[in-house]
Nucleic acid binder design. Structure first.
Lengths: 332, 332
DNA sequence: CTGTCTTGTCGAAGCGCTTCGATTGCCGGA
DNA sequence: TCCGGCAATCGAAGCGCTTCGACAAGACAG
């Protein structure tokens, strides 16, 4: 056992009394090997604690056994979701015997070119894709197998996975209606969000309003998210316009506490005569009083699906271009 | 330009009219090459968009150019800190031309054995090391160059980096004294924390009390963190025992909101006649009203230092066994 | 004007693995 | 009995890179 220099396939072969190629075939299953021989090889592998040299393997087989995951680590992303995502991706990748290389989005297109050209990874998961994302263009050019989380403007030929926002809007409306509300409203995202991800906010709105047809009145309005005062004004205006309003969905994380404040000021007893539900990647609902039900991004599922799709692509199978994941409505 | 099969060093050599080995030497700088030749090679590299094949490189040079980072991704760790950490580590690693492989702690010792044996990484950063950590033992056995964040019980022969908790305690006391407090107290961690990381909580306490000598009275008491009621009782008892108390340091993240509640009930005006400072990995101070100054774990710095140390070890240099990082007191 | 260093470059030998014929027995059908 | 066919295994040829020893040319001292 040559501990300092590492156990090679030759060591295993010698120990099992076979050729190196036979060991390789036992391990990969790419040719049939007699059970007796296979067993001897496996024993030798176990006894020597053999693990194939990743570099040699990737050189010979043109498969690195590693996928890259590019996360927007630098700016103020929703951390918990990102972690869930990373955790889910690593776990799922390991189930497929792959490792995960972590990249930050600020490596940008050049980073993609680098990992692609150096064959250090077999494929790529790109998180938090924006509508106009320079990385998407680079990706298409490189031809590196990939799965995106989120939808760019031109998704042709790409595999994308995302939350089904229409369903999220619908779920919120359903929840409120289920609580007996007959007049409901959606406070939407701020302008910035609309710019960053076209469709994303609109889809929530669409789902909400469609389901809202079932009650007396349903409407949606945008909501600023930067300063407390304008949020509160927005809420006041809404309440003034719709005195019968009893259900509110908020699709705007930073605004939530201020909305709650404004409702309290207006004498609304949330959870009793008035109902609020939140759509947000974070557990915003947890942080306010009373706790609010919320529609979460099922980050772990998204990651699983993304990695699963990528694996299938790497194995040459087809996967759907677009996969929408059902949101989860959590009631506290 | 053979786009489909990848640009190899031979392509670059041909284009520059030199031998492949010359290209290698230009890129690595391991032998002197005439400026003229070097320039021609660099031009060819740029024109062809050449990136060395990572597997081939690691096979030939016994250096993978990748480090592993093992994070406790699964349980309810302090997410923001983890992200800052991951981000810092990746950024710093890239500055050293290394990539980062992400592993979860639940791969455990077996995961370490795998990455070590397969030479997929050159070294390892182990986060959130606990006092009795089975991975530490495995690590020592493997002889894989590594840096730990946190201190295991037996740190002999290991490189460890962590926050200087004594300094953190001292900083808190200093802050309170600086605000004019003459009678101060530290509400410490719960029992569980004490068990997990010996020394960690004691050191904060030590630093706090040492600096506290400078005023009329300073004391420290443990604090439960699970249920609001017992936290509030603890605070009430403290206030009853020390009617002159005007400064409080809280080293117990989940208890913070309840402490604030209890103080408000007792009629203390935090920020005016009473001062509170928080030690916590999260921006807890941000979430309560009024915002509290807090001593943060400088996660990004920790990561930078850890990666820097690892790089130096990989290059054969010595690094200190133990590095303590100064805490940052942030005043809102 | 030799002999000895340097300096810059080349060629070849691997690194540890996969993979593609080729080879060896062994079976059953003719 | 002979031979085609199949199953099990081997050997050798790379994969793309680094690195070591060689080797031309100058540079320089003697």
């Amino acid at each position: 056992m040559n501990a300092s220099r590492g156990v090679t396939i030759a060591d295993v072969a010698a120990r099992a009394g076979v050729a190196a190629s036979t060991v390789s075939y036992v391990l990969s299953g790419k040719r049939s090997i007699s059970p007796a021989t296979a067993q001897r090889v496996m024993d030798a592998v176990a006894e020597l604690g053999y693990h194939p040299h990743a570099g040699a393997r990737s050189l010979a087989s043109r498969r690195a056994g590693v996928i890259a995951m590019m996360l927007p680590l630098r700016d103020g992303m929703h951390l918990p979701v990102l972690m869930q995502f990373a955790s889910g991706a690593v776990t799922e990748a390991r189930r497929h015997d792959q490792d995960v290389l972590l990249m930050t989005a600020d490596e940008g297109p050049a980073g993609l070119a680098r990992v692609a050209a150096s064959s250090i990874v077999d494929g790529l998961i790109l998180m938090d894709v924006e509508v106009r994302d320079p990385r998407v263009e680079a990706l298409r050019r490189l031809g590196l197998p990939s799965v995106l989380i989120g939808f760019p403007a031109d998704a042709a030929g790409l595999t994308c996975v995302d939350l089904d926002f229409t369903a999220a809007g619908r779920e919120c409306a359903s929840y409120l209606i289920g609580r007996g509300c007959r007049d409901i409203a959606l406070l939407g995202a701020s302008e910035v969000v609309y710019e960053r991800r076209t469709g994303f906010a609109e889809r929530v709105r669409g789902g909400f309003l469609a389901r809202g047809e079932a009650c007396d009145h349903a409407e949606a309005r945008p909501c600023p998210d930067d300063d407390p005062v304008s949020v509160q004004r927005t809420v006041k205006e809404l309440l003034a316009a719709r005195p019968e309003l009893t259900g509110l969905a908020v699709h705007n994380e930073p605004a939530v506490p201020h909305v709650m404040h404004a409702l309290a000021d207006a004498g609304k007893l949330v959870g009793e005569d008035f109902h609020v539900v939140v759509i947000g990647p974070d557990e915003v609902g947890e942080r306010v009083h009373p706790r609010l039900p919320s529609v979460l991004v099922p980050a772990e599922r998204l990651a699983e699906i993304a990695v699963g799709h990528l694996m299938r692509k790497l194995d040459g199978f087809d996967v759907p271009d677009s996969t929408l994941v059902e949101p989860q409505l959590t009631v506290r």
